[in-house]
Design a protein around this nucleic acid. Structure first.
Length: 468
DNA sequence: CGGGCACTAAACAGAC
DNA sequence: CGTCTGTTTAGTGCCC
C-alpha cells in the first residue's frame, strides 16, 4: 500500500484489483466472473455478466447505483473471493509479504519457517501462500466449493478436489483436514445431504448442498472472514491513520476485522438481493423483476454440468421429476458468528417448523419442473470441465460429452441479442414472480434465527454438559 | 473465568 | 476386504 497512489481513480484501482483476483483463481468460475466484470466495465450488456452465472451471483457488483455514503465502488468489490489484493501493488514494498528467503514463491516465512496459520496482517493468496493455512473456516471452504459448482451440490470427494485445487496448502497438509471437512458436513447445519433416493446418488456417498435457509448466513460468515476483500478494500480505500504505511514499512497489525456496516446491516452492494429484501417495506415489483431476472441467470447455470445431465437422465429413467434451484431465500441477518453457520447436534423436527419456514427437505429446496422446462435450461452456456472448472460455450470439454439431446432453443442469454434476452427474461420473470409472490406472502423475514432451531448452542451446551 | 466456537483426532458403522 | 463416506464423541485452543 505504500506504493499505492492514493489518488488513483476508482476505475483504475478496481481494474488492478480485478486483474489480481482473476489471476488467483485462474480458469475458475470466479475468474470468468471477474473477467466478466471487466467486460461490464467496458460497457457490455449486464446480462452477459458471468458473475451472475457463478456461485457468487448474489455478491455481484452493482455498479450502476449511486454510492451510499458508506459504500463506494471499491468496497462494492467486496463480493470477490479472497485473494492477494496487493499482488500487483508491489507486495515486497509494503512489508506484507515476508521476510527473507520467502520471496521466491511469495509464501510467508517467519523466523525461517512457515507459520501454521496465515499471518493476520498479510492478504492471503491461496495459490501463493501454499504453506499457510487458509484463513477460512472449513464451513466457508465447503460453502465456496459447493457454491462454485454449477449445481450447487457436490460429493465429498469433489469438495476435497475443489479445496485442493483452490488451496494448494492442503495438498501437503495432513489428511486430517478431510476428516474435518466430513465432520463439518455432518455437524454443520448449513450443509445438507441430498437424499439418495432422489436419483442423485453418485456412487459412494451423497451429494451435499447448502441449506438455503442458512445460505445467507454463510455468505455473511464469508464476508466476515478476515481476508475477505471487503476488509482489504476497506483498508485500501480508507486506511485508518494507525495503519498508514510509510517508507515501505508495513505495520504488523491485523487489519480490523469488523465490517464497517453494523452487524445487522447488509450492504446493498455486497448483498443486493438480501439487502433489498431486508429493507423492503413495500412490494416493489420492478425490483423483484430484477431479482427474478437475476435468478433466471443463476438458474441457467444450474443445468450446465455433467452431473446435472447424468442426474437428469437417471431421474428420467426413474420417473423422478427434475429440479431447479429456488433462489428465494429468507433474509437472515445475524449478529453473532454462531448464527452465520453453526453446528447442529439436534435434528430439527420438520413438524416444528413454521409452515412458512423453508423446509429442509430436498423436495422443498428445489422446484420440480417438467422435462421441457429442464430442456430450456439444459443446453446453455457453461459446462463443468473435467477439472471441475467451467468451460464456457464449449460443447465437448476434456471428455465431457454434452447432453446428446437436441437443444430445443439456443442459449438463453449469452448468444441472444438484447431484445430477445429481455423478452425471455421478462417471461421467465413473470413465471417466477408468481412463485415469488407465494413466498412473499407466506415467508416472513427472519431477523435472527429461532434460538430453538439454532441448535449450535444446544449442541455445545450438550457437549459441555456431557463433558462436565 | 466460563461459555461458545472452530478445529482436530479418533472410533465406529455402513456403503461401495 | 479395503476404501470411502458419514456420524459421533472427545479434547484442545482461541476469543469474547
Amino acid at each position: 500500500m505504500p506504493s499505492m497512489d492514493i489518488n488513483e481513480s476508482d476505475a483504475s484501482m478496481r481494474q488492478r484489483l480485478v486483474n489480481s483476483l482473476s489471476a488467483s483463481f485462474p480458469g475458475s468460475a470466479l475468474s470468468k466472473a471477474l473477467q466478466g466484470m471487466k467486460d461490464l466495465d467496458d460497457g457490455s450488456d449486464e446480462m452477459n455478466d458471468p458473475l451472475s452465472k457463478s456461485c457468487f451471483a448474489e455478491l455481484r457488483l452493482i455498479k450502476e447505483e449511486p454510492m451510499d455514503e458508506e459504500d463506494d465502488e471499491l468496497t462494492s468489490l467486496a463480493w470477490l473471493q479472497d485473494s492477494d489484493l496487493l499482488k500487483n501493488i508491489h507486495a515486497g514494498e509494503d512489508g506484507f509479504d515476508s521476510d527473507e528467503g520467502s520471496k521466491e514463491n511469495g509464501d510467508i516465512k517467519m523466523n525461517g519457517c512457515y507459520p501454521q496459520t496465515h499471518p493476520p496482517h498479510v492478504p492471503y493468496n491461496p495459490q501463493k501462500h501454499i504453506h499457510s493455512k487458509p484463513p477460512y473456516s472449513f464451513s466457508c471452504l465447503i460453502f465456496m466449493a459447493v457454491e462454485d459448482s454449477p449445481q450447487k451440490m457436490l460429493p465429498v470427494k469433489d469438495i476435497y478436489a475443489w479445496i485442493l485445487n483452490q488451496f494448494p496448502y492442503f495438498q501437503n497438509a495432513p489428511t486430517g483436514w478431510k476428516n474435518s471437512v466430513r465432520h463439518n458436513l455432518s455437524l454443520n447445519k448449513c450443509f445438507k445431504k441430498v437424499e439418495k433416493d432422489r436419483g442423485l446418488s453418485i456412487g459412494k456417498g451423497s451429494l451435499w448442498c447448502i441449506d438455503p435457509e442458512y445460505r445467507p448466513n454463510l455468505l455473511q460468515a464469508l464476508r466476515k472472514t478476515p481476508y475477505h476483500p471487503y476488509h482489504q478494500l476497506q483498508m485500501l480505500a480508507n486506511p485508518p491513520p494507525s495503519q498508514q504505511y510509510q517508507n515501505g514499512q508495513g505495520i504488523n497489525r491485523p487489519l480490523p476485522l469488523a465490517p464497517r456496516l453494523g452487524p445487522n446491516t447488509v450492504s446493498p452492494h455486497l448483498f443486493p438481493f438480501l439487502s433489498k429484501r431486508l429493507n423492503q417495506t413495500s412490494y416493489d415489483i420492478d425490483s423483484d423483476i430484477q431479482d427474478v431476472a437475476q435468478t433466471l441467470v443463476s438458474l441457467k447455470s444450474l443445468s450446465n454440468s455433467k452431473h446435472f445431465h447424468e442426474s437428469q437422465d437417471l431421474k428420467r429413467k426413474r420417473g423422478i421429476p427434475s429440479y431447479q434451484t429456488r433462489h428465494f431465500e429468507p433474509i437472515v441477518c445475524t449478529v453473532v458468528p454462531s448464527e452465520d453457520h453453526t453446528y447442529s447436534m439436534t435434528t430439527v423436527d420438520e413438524d416444528d417448523l413454521a409452515p412458512s419456514s423453508p423446509s429442509s427437505s430436498i423436495d422443498d429446496e428445489y422446484d420440480f419442473g417438467s422435462d421441457e422446462e429442464i430442456d430450456d435450461f439444459s443446453d446453455n452456456g457453461d459446462r463443468l470441465g473435467s477439472d471441475g472448472e467451467y468451460e464456457s460455450g464449449v460443447d465437448e470439454v476434456d471428455g465431457y460429452v454434452p447432453n446428446n439431446r437436441t437443444p430445443k432453443r439456443p442459449r438463453l442469454i449469452c448468444e441472444e441479442d438484447d431484445e430477445e434476452e429481455k423478452k425471455k427474461i421478462e417471461e421467465g420473470a413473470d413465471a417466477l414472480l408468481n412463485l415469488a409472490g407465494i413466498f412473499k406472502t407466506s415467508q416472513p423475514l427472519l431477523s435472527s434465527r429461532n434460538p430453538e432451531h439454532n441448535s449450535c448452542s444446544q449442541k455445545n451446551s450438550a457437549k459441555n454438559s456431557k463433558r462436565s
